[in-house]
Write a protein that binds this DNA or RNA. Sequence first.
DNA 1: TCAATTGTTCGAATATCTTCGAACTGTCTA
DNA 2: TAGACAGTTCGAAGATATTCGAACAATTGA
Lengths: 104, 104
Amino acid sequence: MRKLKHPTIDQIELTDIMYALADPTRLEIVTLLANARKKMTCGEFTLNRSKSTMSHHFKILRSSGLVETLIEGTEHMNSLRLEEIENKFPGVLKSVIKATKVIG
Amino acid sequence: MRKLKHPTIDQIELTDIMYALADPTRLEIVTLLANARKKMTCGEFTLNRSKSTMSHHFKILRSSGLVETLIEGTEHMNSLRLEEIENKFPGVLKSVIKATKVIG
DNA sequence: TCAATTGTTCGAATATCTTCGAACTGTCTA
DNA sequence: TAGACAGTTCGAAGATATTCGAACAATTGA
């Protein structure tokens, strides 16, 4: 469990990102991460879901390429791969984050 | 069957749009519509799917607010609600369309 | 070394999605 | 008015998703 797998930039696919963002729970995680502007542990997200459910969503966020998870001790520090994704799909992630801000 | 229901602009929700765009078939319909720059009938999309399957996808595209369908005779003319959605969620739809162009 | 902490994995239940063929509806035209 | 045409709706099959609790793994600290 030393290191978690992440896709490289060229392995990231648009449909995977769309799919990851289509779930309300995951979209909320993404916007919280974007607004936090810092790394957050899984435990900091109190979205009324069980530990295993949250872990499941983070796994999908990681495999889509949206989130990077670094292990520090017993904690998993999560951050958005915003710049990389902006570089590959300009405007996609940023506009979605901005759109969620306006609403809630 | 005279007129089909569409959500008004303020009824359109971001997660519904994300969900609609997450399916490869629907994403392809959306990009074809965007590139066509004109209204297209359902029959013009030859994506190796049955009539009923295509109808199902168009129903989701309509209910998400992405697509508007006007009935002209026996044909259903479809178009993207690009300007409306741009107005509500700036950059979201346009950046996704642009991102798909680069790839395929 | 042992317990506490953080998160993952497993297995299962439930719900939702995609897909299709068949039957149907509304419109046009011969 | 009957047939052709474009899509929708229905019902069902099979695949995927979401969710949870329980068990597990890795690290830290006492």
